[in-house]
Every structure is written in structure tokens, then in C-alpha cells.
Design a protein around this nucleic acid. Structure first.
Length: 309
DNA sequence: AAGGCGTGGTC
DNA sequence: TGACCAAGCCT
């Protein structure tokens, strides 16, 4: 019996073609004017934005992104600067290893790709700091390629709309990828717009907390909404930040970032007052791990600095 | 394959 | 207020 003779049933996933069409219509009217979405933005500009946006909100990325591209408008420009300058320019965006990886990726682009950001998914995936999501995002947003762009927003939207689950699983599963593939339009241009639109819907409407279902173009066919938006019982346990090694690393790196030259270990230690839980051992541990990551370099026996290249 | 890795905003 | 969250990646 033809599919269209069956009326929609509660708990049945809606037609992907309808989901895509409605989301694209919504996006046409609601998309934010972000600088890396403008037609004149280079593939490099898109790639820089994707690195900065990893686990970091859009509002905090806007300023640093512009400053970064003003200073390093091409991969070659960044590759010609010392790695420490990339770490310094990264500022307080967080996860400073991303700055190091972006710098190494720029060098690889110069060395292996003629200075041009690759469009091929596998070539992108091979770059430092580029995982499945970022590779697909750059291929799609920078080059208009058809790719499965599966970030936390898209995962949440599809989990709710198609699976009736309020939150996606902790890690990407094959079933999610298959679901995303089933929603991906055939035409590359439409696929790229769907990627941006589904992410935007997750970011602005289908949010993790307090979703604005009344403003959602999919509200009447969303499996999760039709089921009464059941709450998830599972909550990943989040570690508090105060007093952690992460905070200690951040405090140490902040001193080096703001210093013109090498800083003595004794002075660096004042960035982590003894009254904190971890004490002196924690400081040594943080410094060692920062050096192991390549974020800091020893100068002689008693000084530290950002890496030279 | 869980857990480590920054920082700041929100409710 | 503290817990959660934000366009993940790497080991």
C-alpha cells in the first residue's frame, strides 16, 4: 500500500523531505548575519570560525575571529608566524590547544595543499584539530560540498524531531549518522543550506534548555513535542571548575600570554596561590602538562615562555 | 572509549 | 549559587 495512504501516527518519525523544506523556509527568514556566512568570506575564514566555535558560543567568537583574520588573512600568513603568537591571539577563548592545532593545520595547508583550504572531506579530516564535524562543516560552508554536518545542534534537533528523545546520546552513534544521512538533500547547494539551517534551528529555537517550541517550524510534527516533551533522566556529571588542573593551566597560561618575554618559574607560581586546594604540586603538574602540549616552552632552567614556532 | 581540556554566560 | 551549557577533538 502506498505510504501516503497512511495517516501520520504518534511516535512515527516525520517525512525528512518535509522537515528539510520547512527548516529551509524558516532559515530564509531567521538566519543570523554572521561574518563567516557572508558570500565574500574565504574558506580560510570559515575554517578559522569552525575552530573557534568548537565548544565556544558565537557571541564570544565574533571579536577574536575578526582580529585573527585581520592579522592572518591566509593560512600562509599564520604559518609564517610563531606558534606562540597564535596562542597569544587566541586570548581567553578557551581550549588554547585549538590555537596550536589551527597553526599546525595552516602549516599543513601550505606544505601539502598549495596554501588553499582543501575541499575534500578526507584531506580536511587529516588536518590537526579537524574531526568529523569540522571537516564536514568546512567542506559544506566553505566549499558548498554535500556533507553530513552533525554537530550538537543538529543532533539535538534530529533526536527530538525524528526519535522523540530530548537529548542526543553522549557520543555520536551509527543510528544518528544514518538519520542525518536520510535528511541530507541530494543537491549540494541545498544540502549545505540544510546543514546551516538545522544548526541554526538548534541554536536559536530547539535549544538544550527552555526550547522555544512555539516558534519552531516543526512543532506540529516533532515526535518529541507530540509525546509531551518527556524529560531525560540521564544527566552527565559535570566537574566543577574551581580548583581544577584546568583552571591552574589557564591561570599559568594567562600570565605568559600577557608577558612580553620569558617569565621566571617563581613569578609564574604566584598565578596559583597556595590557598587553593591543589597547592604547589598542582602548579608543577599544570606546567608540565602545558609543556607536554607544546603550549609553553622552557627557557633555560628557570624561565618559561610561549612557544617560538 | 571515557575523560581531559578553558572560559564565561545563564537561570 | 552552583550546575548546566556552548558549531569538538584527541588519546
Amino acid at each position: 500500500m502506498p505510504e501516503h495512504l497512511h495517516p501520520p501516527t504518534i511516535g512515527t518519525a516525520p517525512d525528512p523531505a518535509v522537515v528539510v523544506a520547512r527548516t529551509l523556509d524558516w532559515y530564509a527568514g531567521q538566519a543570523r548575519d554572521l561574518p563567516w556566512r557572508r558570500p565574500d568570506c574565504s574558506p580560510w575564514g570559515v575554517m578559522v570560525s569552525e575552530f573557534m566555535l568548537q565548544q565556544t558560543p558565537v557571541t564570544r567568537v565574533l571579536g577574536p575571529w575578526q582580529a585573527w583574520l585581520d592579522r592572518w588573512p591566509t593560512p600562509a600568513a599564520l604559518a609564517a608566524s610563531p606558534a606562540g603568537e597564535a596562542v597569544r591571539m587566541w586570548g581567553r577563548l578557551g581550549y588554547p590547544r585549538r590555537a596550536l592545532r589551527l597553526h599546525r593545520a595552516a602549516q599543513a595547508i601550505v606544505d601539502d595543499h598549495g596554501g588553499q583550504v582543501p575541499a575534500d572531506l578526507e584531506e580536511l579530516r587529516a588536518l590537526p584539530g579537524v574531526g568529523d564535524y569540522t571537516a564536514a562543516a568546512v567542506a559544506s560552508f566553505a566549499h558548498g560540498r554535500r556533507a553530513v554536518v552533525l554537530d550538537t545542534n543538529v543532533r539535538r534537533v534530529l533526536s527530538r524531531v525524528a526519535a522523540g528523545e530530548g537529548q542526543p546520546p553522549a557520543h555520536v552513534r551509527a543510528s544518528e549518522r544514518a538519520r542525518a544521512e536520510a535528511h541530507l538533500p541530494r543537491a549540494a547547494g541545498r544540502a549545505a543550506r540544510w546543514a546551516a539551517a538545522s544548526m541554526e534551528l538548534g541554536a536559536l529555537v530547539c535549544t538544550a534548555r527552555n526550547p522555544r517550541c512555539e516558534a519552531c517550524p516543526l512543532v506540529d510534527l516533532c515526535t518529541w513535542n507530540l509525546a509531551g516533551r518527556p524529560e531525560e533522566t540521564y544527566r552527565p556529571r559535570t566537574q566543577s571548575y574551581e580548583g581544577t588542573d584546568r583552571q591552574c593551566r589557564g591561570a599559568v597560561l594567562a600570565v605568559l600570554r600577557d608577558a612580553a618575554g620569558p617569565v621566571a618559574t617563581t613569578e609564574l607560581r604566584t598565578a596559583w596561590p597556595e590557598h587553593r586546594a591543589g597547592g604547589a604540586d598542582q602548579f608543577e603538574r599544570a606546567l608540565t602538562s602545558l609543556a607536554a602540549d607544546g603550549l609553553v616552552t622552557a627557557i633555560g632552567a628557570e624561565h618559561w615562555a610561549l612557544p617560538g614556532d
